[in-house]
Amino acid sequence: MSQMIINGMVLGMIYALIALGLTLIFSIMNVVNFAHGQMYMLGGFVVYYLYGVYQLNYFLALIAAALALAVIGIIFEKFFFRRVIRLAKREENTMLLAMGTALLLENLALFSFGEKQRGVPPVVTGVYEIGGGYLPAGRALVFFVALFLVIGLLLFVQYTRPGRAMRALAQDKEATYLQGVDINQISALGFAIGAALAGLAGGLLITIFAINAGSGTAVSTKAFTMIMIGGAGVVSGAILGGFVLGFCEAIGYETLPGSTTYLIIFIALILFLIVRPQGIMGRPQG
């Protein structure tokens, strides 16, 4: 039981961090960023090279991953999405663009970094025994850093001027514009933060999971599942969705035959979306 709770807590926190970046971009720009998993993967590679290969301090490497992905996010927003959103009359155009960027990043990574799985030396070592369950120190570190980042993001969005502008933009674009907010700047900031969060998640999780050039797709799929559960575009929903999926996995793998865990999760998700299509915290359409 205690192992199940530990697994659920750690998975939930990790998933929440992954889902946050995706939901942030969706709320501000109404863009489903299919390249979110690929951004996660790139963040992992930045940490792999800086910390694993060139032996830079891990936390500096993590900051570098966030900055690198923020820059990529700004480039994507400014040169790709901003123009397509302005010109396109259908939402599918941004989705296709997002899919294109995902394929672009994946193939660039495969070409540049090769096909192998990459991992880094542990940042901390040891295993804690808590109530009969095991918690490796690396996972504990990931849990607390992720918790710190989630709280930091919530405080930023709630109490700072750009954070409030982002929330306003998510609620009503025209009203925000009429209040004198630079929409382009806030959109770029939102995309940069979303991408940086993906990069941070990748940089953080490479210490316990490792990555390869193709690992982004599975991450994106799980992130979409989480925001569907929690409610697309709602920050608190992404966190909740992350924990719900994390605990479902932990309980399912512990109590059910392995192959049925995700089958049941997806059946439950379909039934849940029939009853509440906007997710737990989402607003109903219209």
């Binding site: 697994n7 316990i208 797709t217």
Partner: peptide, 11 residues
């Protein structure tokens, strides 16, 4: 696509 094998390996 699983990356966290802790839950399944626990069992």
């Amino acid at each position: 696509g699983t990356t966290d094998f802790f839950p399944v390996m626990s069992k």
